[in-house]
């Protein structure tokens, strides 16, 4: 128990002293996840709204597929994309493997189904009277779209935040596609795995605590938006 308490206090000292190494890793994690969630949102939100509003052949199958993909294992995404990005793979010439871009693409693939699916749920959660109200007020189709987005904004934000939470906490993609390169693709999760295996438990614990803090803040936002959406 002494070992754990000692490690915990050392970790807190590292955090309190704004250890450059630690915060650089935290920042790498955050910006990679932010870019991934931005791209996935730009794709997932419009796709979600389109699927919610349109009836088409295979819609049920698509929804079932998206539900399944929400639980997509990160190592499977990492493995499949590794096959594409490796030197002998179809996209090998692009030199993406072991770059932040590879992690971003991987995280996009991981969280796109989450944001897409939750956007469908957000659109479906809109009050059925909303459309009639907009029409009755004389809103044009464009104005109706803007009003609709504004009305479901919290539910959509909750979808985006859920995607960010999944991206920042994943380890399989960052490890397999990023390679855990110091100062370049080392994220919080990959660094925790590495430092623990090296016996640097205090350092890993400090990162773990910060990851927990990020997860706590993200979850706080998620709950806030979900509450507002209701």
């Amino acid at each position: 128990m002494d070992y754990f308490i000692q490690a915990l206090s050392s970790a807190l000292v590292l955090i309190a002293n704004f250890d450059k190494e630690i915060y650089s890793i935290v920042w790498t994690s955050i910006w990679i996840s932010l870019v991934a969630v931005t791209v996935a949102s730009l794709l997932g939100v419009p796709l979600g709204l389109a699927v919610a509003f349109k009836d088409f052949f295979g819609k049920k199958f698509l929804l079932q597929g998206l539900n399944t993909l929400m639980a997509l294992p990160t190592v499977v995404v990492g493995l499949l994309l590794y096959g594409f990005f490796t030197r002998h793979g179809p996209l090998g010439e692009w030199g993406l493997l072991y770059t932040p871009m590879a992690i971003i693409i991987g995280e996009c693939v991981l969280i796109l189904p989450i944001i897409w699916n939750l956007s469908i749920t957000a659109a479906n959660s809109a009050d059925p009277r909303l459309s009639l109200t907009c029409q009755a007020m004389g809103a044009t189709a464009w104005q109706q779209g803007i009003i609709f987005l504004s009305e479901v904004r919290y539910a959509l934000l909750a979808a985006v935040v859920a995607g960010f939470g999944r991206a920042i906490g994943e380890v399989g993609i960052a490890m397999m596609l990023g390679g855990n390169i110091h100062g370049f693709t080392r994220t919080m999760t990959t660094a925790i795995a590495l430092e623990t295996s090296k016996g640097e438990f205090e350092f890993a614990l400090a990162l773990g605590l910060l990851l927990l803090l990020v997860a706590f803040i993200v979850n706080g936002f998620l709950q806030y938006f979900q509450r507002l959406a209701r």
Partner: peptide, 13 residues
């Protein structure tokens, strides 16, 4: 040119 009030009016957030 018309104002319409539904039975259970929907008010925006």
């Amino acid at each position: 040119r018309v104002g319409y009030v539904q039975q259970k009016p929907y008010l925006f957030h």
